[in-house]
Every structure is written in structure tokens, then in C-alpha cells.
Design a protein around this nucleic acid. Structure first.
Lengths: 122, 122
DNA sequence: CGGTTCGTACGATACCCATCGTAGTACGCC
DNA sequence: GGCGTACTACGATGGGTATCGTACGAACCG
């Protein structure tokens, strides 16, 4: 893996809940928004970190920031600044430890639903 | 199974979404409320139907009605009138068909979280 | 340094929703 | 018929939240 070109994280830091403080209700709520579910599916489909801007969501930048914050504060993703970009990654291990199988079943369900609705249900 | 003493359903009917119209976002939203998650856990713990009143939720009757309606309209439970009571049951088969493993992982996650938080996290 | 890119902060807005109380309906039973 | 139980309908209320635009900050590049 080519990690040598990845810029180091910068001074700015972001609050993340400790694993033991992640609550199932908050995770479910975070995933219950179509926009955020789409983000999570995209993150799961690509290994490693993705910047906020690669998703091209059909909402304003402010709204995008809002959704990523909800995902981070609920414990679904980690975020870190690298240069001007903010990189996002799923907290797969933490979620699997706390709620075994949950993330996978949500991702599978989302995938099946997209197929069932003919991709129009976005 | 003793079904002979169960009163038949009465004339009043209730709207339920067809299986194919159940949406993952709606299910996740329904489950993201602590009160409703508690209801679902209780329903899962007891086989068959349960009336609305056996749960003794710490909210008013109107609010209880509201939560059961959200669960029904999102496709998580079925409801049917039997005499004066309204009986509730999980739509296990439909959910399993649409979103395999989802309900089980949520239930398991809720159970583990309750244990982790020492039952105080209700 | 100046410009560009990426993301944030803040206020506004409109909508959603969890909660309640009160009044009412449906059903079973006496 | 009259009563009690179980649940509903409706309106109100307060808090949450998805959305936007605008103005700002932080880092990189030339």
C-alpha cells in the first residue's frame, strides 16, 4: 500500500466518542437518513479513507458538513484532517465489537433495496 | 399452541405497508427511538402477539399509540384488533427476507448494550 | 504574498416528531 | 342498555434537524 504520499494529519483535531460510549440508538438514527446511508455505503465500498468532497452529494457544502458530523458523533465514522482535506473512514472494528453483524446487515439491506427499487430509490 | 381462546379480529382494520414497500431508512428510523427499541426487544422476547398494554411504558397512552403506529407504518410490526385489545407481532419473516440478519443484529446489539451499561441505560 | 481549494461557523427557516391532555370510539360484559 | 377497558383522534407544545446562504479559516501552490 502506498501510504508514503499521504499527508500527515494537521493540528486541527476532531471529537470522537470512545467506543464504549457509542449507543445503538444513535447509530441507527445516523443510518436512518438517506443521505448518510448513501455516504456509509460509499465508504464501505471503497477501502480506506475518503475525503468529504468525493461523494458529490446533491446538497450544499454546509449540509454535507452536517451529515459527516452526525456520523462522526454517533460513532459510525472517524474523521481526520490531512492537509486541506478531511478524510473519513468507517469504524468497522468498533461497530463490529459492539454490535456484531449490524453494519454488514445494514449494508447488505441497502444494497438489496437499491437493486429491488431499480436504483431509483435514492 | 392454545389458539382457541383467542378472540377473532374485529371489523376495524389497520393499514400495513406491503412487504415490497418497506424501506430500510424507515425501519432504522423506527428502531432508533429508545422507547420503540424497547418495545421491539420485548416483542422479540415473547413468542406471538402481545397487546399494547402489557408493556407499561413510562409514557402516556397517547404516546404509546404513536410509537406503535410508527412501528407498524414502517413495517416492523403487524397490528390487529382482537376485541378491545390491539395485538402486536414482529414481522420477522418479511424483515428477514428484505434485510437478512438486520433484526437479529439489532436485537443482539441492544441486549449487549443493556448488559454493558448495567441496565441503567434505558 | 495572493489565489484556490476544502471545509467550518453561524443564523435563518421550515419541517419533523416525542410528548401530553382531553375528549371520543369500539368492544365485551353485566 | 349501561359500564368499564383499551385504544384513538386531535390539538398544542417544545425540541430536534435537514436544509440553505454567507462569511470565514486553514492549508497548499504558485
Amino acid at each position: 500500500m502506498r501510504t508514503q504520499t499521504r499527508p500527515p494529519s494537521t493540528g486541527r483535531s476532531l471529537e470522537h466518542p470512545d467506543r464504549d460510549l457509542i449507543r445503538l440508538e444513535d447509530v441507527l438514527h445516523a443510518l436512518s437518513d438517506p443521505m448518510r446511508l448513501q455516504i456509509v455505503c460509499a465508504l464501505a465500498g471503497s477501502e480506506g479513507e475518503q475525503s468529504c468532497s468525493v461523494f458529490a452529494l446533491p446538497v450544499s457544502k454546509s449540509t454535507t458538513t452536517h451529515h459527516f458530523r452526525v456520523l462522526r458523533e454517533s460513532g459510525v465514522i472517524t474523521q481526520i484532517y490531512r492537509g486541506t482535506a478531511k478524510m473519513n473512514a468507517l469504524r468497522r472494528d468498533d461497530l463490529e465489537e459492539l454490535f456484531p453483524g449490524l453494519l454488514d446487515s445494514v449494508l447488505t439491506g441497502a444494497h438489496r433495496q437499491a437493486a429491488r427499487l431499480g436504483e431509483e430509490g435514492r
